[in-house]
Amino acid sequence: KKKYVIKVYFEDTGKEVEIEAESKEEALEAAKRLAEELGLKIKKVEIYP
């Protein structure tokens, strides 16, 4: 089964997080949740198959 690796870059902090997920949708949801939890804004998202 294919996994996606999503790199999320946050504004202000210069922080980046990698998330593995089964689908792009799932990964983007996780990225949004994470940003909310951390109180950060997402600057850029890169998706690698």
Rank of each mutant, 00 (worst) to 15 (best):
E25L: 05
K43G: 09
L40N: 02
V17D: 03
E26W: 15
T13R: 07
I19Y: 10
V5E: 02
R33D: 10
I42M: 02
A31R: 00
E29Q: 08
E26A: 14
E25V: 10
P49C: 15
I42R: 00
G14H: 12
Y4I: 08
Y48G: 04
K15Y: 14
I6V: 08
G39V: 02
K24R: 10
Y48R: 15
K32S: 14
E18D: 12
E46R: 02
L40D: 03
E25T: 13
E16Y: 08
K15Q: 06
F10S: 01
A31M: 03
K3S: 15
L28N: 09
L28D: 04
Y4L: 08
D12S: 08
V5P: 01
I42S: 00
Y4V: 14
V8H: 00
I47Q: 04
K7C: 07
E25H: 06
A21Y: 03
L34Y: 05
I19P: 00
I6N: 00
E26K: 07
E18F: 05
E25C: 04
K32A: 13
G14E: 09
E16I: 15
L40F: 05
F10A: 01
G39F: 02
K41H: 09
G39K: 09
P49H: 09
D12I: 14
A21T: 05
V8I: 15
K15E: 10
E37H: 09
L28R: 07
F10N: 00
I42C: 02
A35L: 02
I47L: 12
K41Y: 12
E16P: 08
K44W: 13
F10Y: 03
K2M: 15
E22T: 08
R33M: 09
E25I: 08
K41G: 07
L34F: 05
K24H: 09
V5D: 01
P49A: 05
K24C: 09
I47F: 08
P49Y: 15
L40Y: 12
E20D: 06
I19H: 02
S23W: 05
L34G: 01
V17A: 08
L34V: 15
A35Q: 03
E22F: 05
L34C: 03
E18Q: 13
L34M: 15
A31Y: 02
L40M: 07
V17K: 08
V17Y: 14
Y9N: 03
E25Q: 05
E22Y: 12
A21R: 07
K44C: 06
K43P: 01
V45T: 06
V17W: 12
E37R: 10
S23L: 04
E11L: 06
E29V: 08
V8G: 00
G39Q: 06
E37V: 07
E36A: 10
I47E: 08
V8R: 00
E29S: 14
E36K: 12
Y4G: 01
P49Q: 15
G14R: 06
D12E: 12
A31H: 00
E20S: 09
K43D: 14
E25Y: 13
E16V: 08
K32E: 10
V5G: 04
K2R: 11
K41E: 13
A30K: 12
G14W: 15
E26Q: 14
K2T: 11
R33I: 13
K24Y: 12
R33Q: 03
E29P: 02
L28V: 12
K3Q: 11
V45Q: 02
A27M: 02
E36H: 12
K32R: 04
G14Y: 15
L40W: 08
L40V: 11
E37F: 10
S23C: 08
E29G: 05
Y9S: 09
D12Q: 05
A27C: 13
K44G: 06
P49E: 12
V17M: 09
K43V: 11
K41L: 13
Y48F: 14
Y48T: 07
K15L: 13
E25D: 14
K1G: 15
E37D: 10
K2A: 11
E22W: 06
K24V: 11
K3G: 08
A35S: 06
E20Q: 07
K24S: 11
L38E: 04
E16H: 06
A27E: 00
E22N: 11
G39D: 08
K15F: 06
F10L: 02
E20F: 07
A31T: 03
D12L: 13
V17G: 03
E46I: 10
F10P: 00
K1F: 10
I47P: 03
G14L: 11
Y9V: 11
K32M: 09
I6S: 02
F10Q: 00
E29R: 12
K2V: 09
K2F: 15
Y4N: 01
E36F: 10
E36C: 03
I6F: 10
D12R: 10
A35W: 02
Y9D: 02
A27N: 00
K2P: 09
E46C: 04
A30F: 10
E16Q: 08
E25S: 10
G39L: 02
E29L: 11
E16M: 13
A31W: 02
Y9R: 04
V17Q: 06
K15I: 09
K2L: 14
Y9K: 04
E37A: 14
I42T: 00
K24L: 10
A35D: 01
I42V: 05
E46Y: 08
K2G: 12
T13E: 09
E11F: 13
E46F: 07
